[in-house]
Simulated assay, not measured.
Amino acid sequence: MTDDRLVDLVPELPKVLLHDHLDGGLRPQTVLELADAVGHRLPVEDADSLADWFQQAADSGSLVRYLETFDHTIAVMQTPEALARVAKEAVLDLAADGVVYAEQRWAPEQHLTKGLSLPETVEAVQAGIDEGIALAAADGRTIRVGQIVTAMRHADRWSEIAELAVSYRGAGVVGFDIAGAEDGFPPDRHAGIWRFLADHDFPVTIHAGEAAGVASIAQAVHVGQADRIGHGVRIVEDIAFGTDADGSPLATLGSLAHWVRDHQIPLEVCPVSNLQTSATTAKSVREHPITRLKELDFAVTLNTDNRLMSRTSMSHEMRLLVTEAGWSIDDLADVTIAAAWGAFMHHDERRDLVEHVIVPGYQKIEGAQL
C-alpha cells in the first residue's frame, strides 16, 4: 500500500487514545464563547487566530510558555456547565476522528475557583462524557470514554485527589495520574498514596520521562507502581544505540529499559507534543524515538496529549508517522492494539475491544496483515 493511499485511509481506522488532556483539547470557538461568558480576556478575538496563537505558543520551544496556554483553558472551565460542555465536545471530536476508546485526564483541583467541590467537578465532567457518548451513538459512532483523575505534583493534594479518584471508581473514573512539574516533584514526595492506590487495586499512570529523565521513570515504575508511563520517551537515555560489525543497527538496553520492556509497561508516547516541549532531542517525527522503541518491542502506544495546543488529532499523528517515519498499516495496528491491551478496563473488555472492534476495523483495509 502506498503512503498516499494509507494516509487517505487513516480516518477510517479504529483508534485507542490513552493520553489526552481534557483542558488541552478544547475547540477554539468554545474557548471564545466560554471566555466571553465569564469575562476572561484572551490574546486574540476570533477562533482561527486563537487556534494559531495556541499552536505558536506551544511551538515556541519553551515548556514554560507551553504550560501558560493552560491558564486560558482552565480559566473558562470553572462551572458545571463549562466542564460538561468541554467533556461532551471532546467525546464528539474524538469519535469523529475514529477513536473507539479514550481516557480523558484532567486535574479537578484546578477547577474550584467558582466554588465547585471536587466531587461536583468529577460529576460535571462525567455528565458531559455521557452526553457525548449518547450523541455520538445517535450519529452511528460507538466510543467508550473514562476519566483519569490527576493530581498536580506541586500542589501537594495527592492523597486527597487519590481518594477522590477511588471514590468515583465505577462512576466514570478509571485511573489516577500525577502531572505538572515533573523535575523536582518525584513520586516519593508522597510515597504513601501509592500504597493506598495499590491496596484499592486502582490503576495508575504517571507522567515521567518527558521533562525529566531515567530517574523519573524509575520512580514512576518502582515507587509509584505505575501500570503505564505518561510519555516515557526518555527511556532511550538508558539505551545505547550503535551498529554491529555488519553495520546493522544495534541497541544495548540498560537495566531500567530492560525492566520497562520485560514488563511491557505501556509508554503513552505523544510525538507532536514531545517535539514541542523538547522531551526528545529529535527535530522531526521521522527522528522521534517512537519508531526505534517500537522496533525494540517496547509496549508503545500513540497519543495526542493536547489536541488544541498541538493542533493535532489521532489521525494527524498517524499520518505524520506514515509520511515522515515510513510506518505501515501494520505499524499503526500494533500501537492501537498495544493501547487497547493497556487500557484501564478489565481483561475481558480489552480482549473484546481488540477482537471485535480493532482487528475487524483494520482487516477491512486492504494490505493489513493481522
Rank of each mutant, 00 (worst) to 15 (best):
D238T: 04
A343Q: 01
E366R: 13
A251T: 06
G184E: 13
D48I: 13
G61M: 04
A339G: 13
E68R: 12
A282H: 09
V285Q: 11
P108Q: 00
R157P: 04
V173L: 01
L32K: 01
L267A: 02
I74V: 13
H356M: 06
T243P: 06
G209V: 01
D201E: 13
V76P: 01
A162N: 04
D199N: 14
E182L: 09
R105C: 03
D4C: 04
N303H: 08
H231D: 14
W106Y: 15
E349T: 07
I265E: 08
H111Q: 00
T142I: 10
E12S: 15
G192F: 01
V149W: 02
F196M: 11
A208L: 00
T252K: 13
I143P: 07
R228D: 04
G39W: 10
G132H: 05
L275V: 00
G25K: 05
W158P: 00
G115Y: 07
L13H: 05
D305F: 09
A181D: 15
D20F: 10
L26A: 06
G342K: 11
D352I: 02
L320P: 07
Y168G: 04
G61W: 02
S313V: 05
H346V: 10
E182G: 03
H346I: 11
A47L: 07
E89S: 00
R65E: 14
L320F: 04
P360Q: 02
A211K: 09
E349A: 11
E324V: 01
G39C: 12
R286V: 00
A95G: 03
D20Y: 12
E120M: 01
L253A: 13
F176W: 10
Q104S: 15
G61F: 03
M1S: 14
I148D: 03
V149S: 11
A136D: 08
A338D: 12
L321H: 15
H258G: 14
R351Y: 12
I161H: 10
R5D: 15
L17C: 11
E68V: 02
E89P: 02
E268G: 09
A340D: 07
I329G: 11
D71P: 01
P289F: 14
V31D: 00
K294F: 06
G25F: 08
V31G: 01
A75Y: 00
D139Y: 09
R351W: 12
L118N: 06
V260N: 08
A136F: 07
R319P: 02
V260W: 04
H347F: 12
A257K: 05
Y66Q: 07
G172W: 03
T277W: 04
Q219S: 13
I178H: 09
R189W: 08
L63Q: 05
D23A: 05
A338H: 15
D352Q: 09
E81S: 12
I239G: 02
A96W: 07
I337T: 15
R292D: 12
T150W: 02
G254F: 01
G254A: 06
R228A: 04
D227P: 06
G180Q: 08
L118G: 09
D46T: 09
S159L: 10
L302P: 08
P14E: 12
P14Y: 04
